[in-house]
Design a protein around this nucleic acid. Structure first.
Lengths: 248, 248
DNA sequence: AAGTGGTCTAGACCACTGT
DNA sequence: CAGTGGTCTAGACCACTTT
C-alpha cells in the first residue's frame, strides 16, 4: 500500500488548466473583465505559453472567452440566441430581423451550391451578400444564390450590381410563394471575406447554415450563412421564448 | 517601379498550407487513403511540425481529414446528413432512427438544464443516456433529463437504474402528448464521458443540440445531444430529401 | 518494437491596438 | 511607443496502435 495509481489516466495539462480557468471565470471574474495576459497566466500556472494558449482556445471555442489581438482576453457574455427556423418571414431585410443587404453581383456558385440549385456548375447566378447584426455586433455573413430563372422580373432592371441590385433581387424573390425550406447546420471555418465581415480572423470557427428555398416544386434559391460560433447559439422552432424578444 | 508590395498582407503559413493540402485532397487522394505522416509532411513543405499540425487541425475541423493516434491521418468521407428536426417521431428508440438507450440514473442536472426544466437546481431528475449510430459509427451522445413529475407512472416500477430503467422512462414519456419542442444548436467541446462514447478525444469539437420538450404547457423533458462536429451535418425541416433515406 | 498522432517546452519574431 | 495576442521553430517525450 501507499502507492496510489490514480495517475493511470494522466489528464493532459491543458485540459486540467481549462477546468481550473473555467471555474475561476465562474467565481472570480465578471463579464467583460480583462484577464491577465498570456505570458503572465502561463507563468502563474507554471506552464509554457503554448500550453496555456491551448486551454484558452478551448474556452474561446466554448464561448467563454473572447480574445483580441493588441487588446487582451476578456470574459465573454453568454451566447446570443439567434432565431434561424422562423418560417414567418423569409426574405425580410432590415427591420426586426436585422438582415442587412451589402451588395450583389453575378458569379459562378461553388460546386456544392450548384448541385443544390440543380443548375449548370459553370453558369453564373445572382449572388447577394447580406449581414446579420444583433446586439451591436455582427452575427452572420450570408451569400444568397439566386438563378436568373427564379427572378425573371430582374431582366427589366438595369442596375448591374451593388446595393441597389441586391435590394432588387430580394424584392423579386418576395413575390414568390414559398412552399418550404430545408436547412442544414455544420461546422466550418471562416473564409477570408466572411471573417472580415464577422470581425474575426480567417479560420475562425463558424456555424454554416445552408438553406434551400423551394417554390413551385423547384429550388429557387440557396443561402449559405456563416454564424460566429463563439458568440451565437442558433435556435429553431417556435421562437416565442427566445432571446429575440428581449432585443426588440 | 520594380518593387511589388503584394506581400503587404502576408498570409500565415498554416493558412496557405491548408489551401494547398485542401486542393491536393481533392485531386490526388481518395476517401480513406492514408496521408504521409506529420513529420514527413512537415519536412516536405519545409515547415515545423507544429505549423503543419495547425493546418491539419483546420482541415479536420472542416471534416476533410480524420486523425487517429497510433494509426495515421486519413481522408474523411463527406459529412453524414443527420435529421434532427423531424417532428414525426419523438422518443423512438432503436429502429430507423438508430437511437440506442444505454442506461439511466437519478442525478442532479446541470444548472442550465435545471433552468430550462424550471425545477429546483438541487433536485435530482431521471437522466437517460442514449447513443445515436449511423453508417456504423457513433454520431451522437445524448443525456435526456426528465423530472419525476413528468413520468408519474414510474413510481410503480422498481428497477433502480440501468438499461431496463432507461427503457421504462422512455416508455412512460411516449404516453405524453407533445405540444411542441424547441431546439438550439451551438458549438461545444466533448466532455470526457461523451468523448468516450463518440470515440474521440476529450475536447473534440461537437455540435450541442439542446431540445426542450413541451406538453400541457410545461417543459416535460430536456435533451442535450452532442454530435460529432467533424462527421455530422445536422439537417432540419422536411426530411424527404435527406440522406436518411439512403441509409434505410 | 516500430511508427503514429498528442502533448509540452522555451524561445523568437510579427501584427495589431492602444496611448 | 509599449503591450497584447498570433505565428513559427526545433526539439523532446508520451500514449496509442499495429506488427
Amino acid at each position: 500500500m501507499g502507492t496510489t495509481d490514480l495517475e493511470s489516466v494522466p489528464e493532459p495539462k491543458y485540459w486540467h488548466l481549462k477546468t481550473v480557468l473555467s471555474d475561476a471565470l465562474d467565481t472570480e471574474f465578471a463579464v467583460g473583465e480583462i484577464l491577465p495576459n498570456e505570458r503572465e497566466l502561463a507563468a502563474r500556472f507554471g506552464v509554457a505559453r503554448a500550453t496555456l494558449r491551448q486551454a484558452l482556445e478551448q474556452l474561446e471555442l466554448e464561448g467563454r472567452l473572447q480574445r483580441r489581438r493588441g487588446v487582451g482576453t476578456t470574459v465573454a457574455p453568454p451566447r446570443v440566441g439567434v432565431a434561424v427556423g422562423d418560417s414567418t418571414h423569409g426574405w425580410t431585410d432590415g427591420g426586426a430581423d436585422a438582415w442587412q443587404s451589402v451588395d450583389s453581383v453575378e458569379a459562378v456558385p461553388p460546386a456544392a451550391v450548384a448541385r443544390l440549385l440543380e443548375t449548370d456548375p459553370d453558369t453564373p447566378v445572382h449572388r447577394v451578400r447580406r449581414t446579420r447584426i444583433g446586439q451591436g455586433l455582427p452575427l452572420a455573413a450570408e451569400l444568397l444564390y439566386v438563378p436568373a430563372e427564379s427572378v425573371p422580373g430582374l431582366a427589366a432592371i438595369d442596375t448591374p450590381s451593388g446595393l441597389a441590385r441586391a435590394r432588387a433581387v430580394l424584392r423579386e424573390l418576395r413575390r414568390l410563394a414559398l412552399e418550404g425550406r430545408e436547412r442544414s447546420v455544420e461546422l466550418g471555418s471562416a473564409r477570408a471575406d466572411d471573417a472580415k465581415e464577422l470581425d474575426r480572423l480567417p479560420g475562425a470557427p463558424v456555424l454554416v447554415v445552408t438553406t434551400r428555398y423551394v417554390a413551385a416544386g423547384r429550388t429557387v434559391a440557396v443561402a449559405v450563412a456563416t454564424y460566429r460560433a463563439d458568440t451565437c447559439r442558433l435556435t429553431f422552432g417556435d421562437p416565442h421564448d427566445s432571446e429575440e424578444l428581449l432585443a426588440g
